[in-house]
């Protein structure tokens, strides 16, 4: 799906911020709901939305979070990793010396991740051939071409975070970025973390266990203009405006276009005043897609995604409730994150 840029001024700016507040509390009902109800709720307000906005969403997800990138880069060579909720697969293949498998609930996003990984693989095979040809020439002078190793980004599958198909205790690490905040009850959020912990190795004598890295949207977003902060409503429906191409935007240079769109929330709520090198913040969007027919005079379809905004300390509480041990945790641009491992108890099983 081709995406093009548009002028952000076309987005309604402040009105939607009010809508967000009005939409708050819709999730309160789901708090007491049973698991099946919560699941049905997420089907409508999370899974269905991602299926519908997948190409648009993917076009806005291209830059890794620094803390995630540094976590991945610091994994030892040959480590086996999982990316639960991999979306378009932007973290797969980031570190070429590890092997990663991605899963996502959205088949559309998984398909996008897969073709991205295939392209990368073909590109690498071409480059390797060139290097080998070059290496043959260099061999006579004794400066053979060195292999840098190819990254694996093709391995993706469709799965639910609460029914993962991964061999238990086999992975060295798991990342789960901007996923758990879509679960609509605390029990389910803790259960999701428990599932992540089950995927990683337990520690043995002299060998630390596998680690999980979890990232969630924070309630405390004082530096962003979304208007959410300490003490506010934590369960929200956040709109995603699927922009149609009503006005043909003047063609911006790609780089400039990306920078502009990064500063604009899909809902029209301006994201934090990002400087040029900042990563995209969650729910940042702006690129239009051809997913909907241009239909002047009609409003753009709005999809509402459920979010639970984590307050300070809540993520660590959920890790403990899931039987994990917090290794480090922190805050990065509107998100809370935690690195955790299994509690090193010999009695712990499954």
């Amino acid at each position: 799906m081709m995406a093009s840029t548009h002028t952000p001024s076309a987005l309604p700016s402040d009105s939607v911020a009010g809508d967000v507040a009005k939409l708050a509390a819709a999730a309160a009902a789901s708090q007491a709901a049973e698991s099946a109800e919560a699941e049905a709720y997420e089907k409508t307000h999370v899974h269905g939305v991602y299926e519908a906005i997948a190409p648009h969403f993917s076009a806005t997800r291209y830059k890794p979070w620094p803390a995630v990138a540094s976590f991945l880069q610091s994994r030892p060579p040959g480590a086996v990793g999982l990316d639960v909720g991999c979306g378009n697969g932007k973290y797969l293949g980031l570190n070429p010396s590890v092997y990663m498998v991605g899963s996502d609930r959205s088949a559309s996003l998984v398909a996008l991740a897969h073709s991205r990984g295939r392209q990368l693989q073909e590109q690498q095979a071409q480059e390797a051939k060139k290097r080998i040809a070059q290496g043959e020439l260099d061999a006579t002078t004794g400066t053979g071409g060195e292999s840098s190793g190819a990254a694996i980004a093709t391995e993706v599958l469709v799965a639910d975070g609460l029914s993962l198909p991964f061999r238990e205790r086999a992975a060295d690490f798991v990342i789960c970025i901007a996923v758990i905040h879509h679960m609509s009850t605390r029990t389910r959020r803790q259960e999701a973390i428990r599932h992540l912990l089950r995927c990683v190795r337990t520690g043995q004598a002299g060998q630390p266990g596998g680690q999980i890295l979890v990232y969630v949207w924070a309630l405390e977003q004082g530096n962003s203009r979304r208007g959410w902060d300490e003490g506010g409503e934590q369960d929200l429906l956040v709109p995603w405006v699927l922009k149609s191409q009503q006005k043909q935007p003047k063609r911006l240079k790609q780089r400039k276009g990306q920078k502009r769109t990064r500063d604009q929330d899909s809902s029209g709520v301006a994201a934090s005043n990002n400087s040029g090198e900042a990563p995209p913040s969650e729910a940042t969007a702006g690129a239009t897609t051809a997913a909907t027919e241009p239909d002047p005079g009609h409003t753009d379809p709005v999809f509402k995604r459920y979010y639970h905004l984590y307050r300070k300390g809540e993520l660590e509480e959920d890790v403990l409730a899931a039987g994990g041990a917090v290794i480090t945790s922190g805050y990065e641009r509107d998100n809370w994150w935690v690195v955790a491992a299994n509690e090193p108890l010999p009695s712990q099983s499954t």
Partner: peptide
Amino acid sequence: SDDVEVNPELLVNLLPRLD
């Protein structure tokens, strides 16, 4: 079958993780 560049280091490191 795909054409994939051989990464001996990765294979060697993966070996103990395979069943």
